[in-house]
Amino acid sequence: MENEDDSRATTYTTIAVGPDFRHELEIRRSRFITVLRRSPDEETARSLVHDLRREFHDARHHCSAFVIGPDRMIQRSSDDGEPSGTAGIPMLEALLKRETSPRVTDLSDVSVVVVRYFGGILLGAGGLVRAYSESVSAGLDLAPLVLRRRLRLCAIEVPHAGAGRLENELRGAGYVMADTGYEPQHTVLRVALPDEATAISEARARLASLTAGHLELRPQGTEWVDVPR
């Protein structure tokens, strides 16, 4: 059985690896500084709050939200002193409802902090909800997004003499080749496939066609990789 759980997500969208992405809005004299970070785990997400508390130590609020995991199972938010439900939840909803393509909301592995410097004018509950939601949305408008895909690595043991030809044929058929291994009796070609039963079945059929059924495709482990959108 190639895939233990076909119900798991095989793709999702996140922000590109790189420096934190920043954006600032001024709303009725209050400054809202939004900072986004690629966060594959809770420790990385919480470190963003810690870092910004030190950097903006004189700010009144450091509100935060994050969503983590291919299936977006980890979701947290904090109002950090703002009236309950006016900051953290709107920020989290801005992440969860972000359309990464038409009618697709799959953004994950992202943490966001909005630092607020109070400008002396009360915004009211509705005004705060709009301000924090708009701050996150404006930051996401600037952050480059990438697609994460779960790929299944599959090995093919090929006699040394035929390895180069088979690799070229697989590449020509559009397959993504991973690292190649060399053993005394054969070369091990590795193909990276979408981690779906149909993709593996199709690759098996193609391999059988290319080698007259003499070689076998052996599914191995999986890994998540960034791929072009």
Rank of each mutant, 00 (worst) to 15 (best):
P90M: 00
E93M: 05
G181W: 12
Q185W: 05
T222L: 11
L95M: 04
D79F: 06
L189V: 01
P83N: 04
L140G: 05
E93D: 13
S7F: 06
A205Q: 15
H62W: 15
S201T: 09
H23E: 10
R206L: 12
Y132S: 00
Y132R: 07
S209T: 09
L166E: 06
L123Q: 08
L189I: 01
P102G: 09
S7G: 00
I74D: 10
T13Y: 15
E169N: 07
V112N: 04
E196I: 00
V115P: 00
F118D: 06
S137Y: 05
L217F: 08
G181M: 10
D6N: 08
E93S: 09
D71I: 03
D20N: 15
H57M: 11
S78N: 15
R72T: 02
T211G: 11
E183Q: 01
R98N: 12
A205H: 11
Y117H: 12
L122S: 07
D179Q: 15
Q75K: 05
E4G: 03
E157F: 10
E202V: 05
D195P: 05
V113H: 00
A45Q: 11
R229I: 06
H50C: 10
R72D: 07
G81L: 01
T105Q: 14
P102M: 07
Q220M: 13
G139T: 00
H214Y: 03
S77N: 10
T180P: 09
M73P: 04
R72C: 04
D109Y: 06
G221L: 11
R149Q: 15
G162C: 05
D195I: 06
A161Q: 15
T34S: 13
H214A: 15
S209Y: 10
I27S: 01
T14S: 12
K97W: 13
D109C: 05
R46T: 08
G172H: 10
D51Q: 08
P19D: 15
D5M: 07
H160Q: 10
V114W: 04
V113Q: 02
L140D: 14
D141N: 13
R150L: 07
S64M: 11
A203G: 03
R130K: 14
R53S: 08
T44K: 12
L193F: 09
T14Y: 00
F66N: 05
I74T: 07
Y117V: 02
V146H: 03
T198D: 15
V158T: 06
E24M: 10
G174F: 14
L145H: 13
G213P: 12
A199L: 06
Y175H: 08
R53G: 05
H160V: 09
A45N: 10
R190M: 11
G213I: 07
L142P: 07
A208I: 06
I200G: 02
V136I: 13
G85Y: 11
P184D: 14
R8A: 03
D226S: 14
G172V: 02
G127Q: 09
A197G: 08
F118A: 01
E42S: 12
R31K: 14
V114S: 11
P228M: 03
A208N: 15
S78G: 10
A9H: 07
V35L: 12
H50F: 15
I156W: 02
C154F: 07
F56E: 01
P83E: 08
F32R: 01
G172T: 03
E167V: 04
T13K: 03
V17D: 15
A16C: 01
A163E: 08
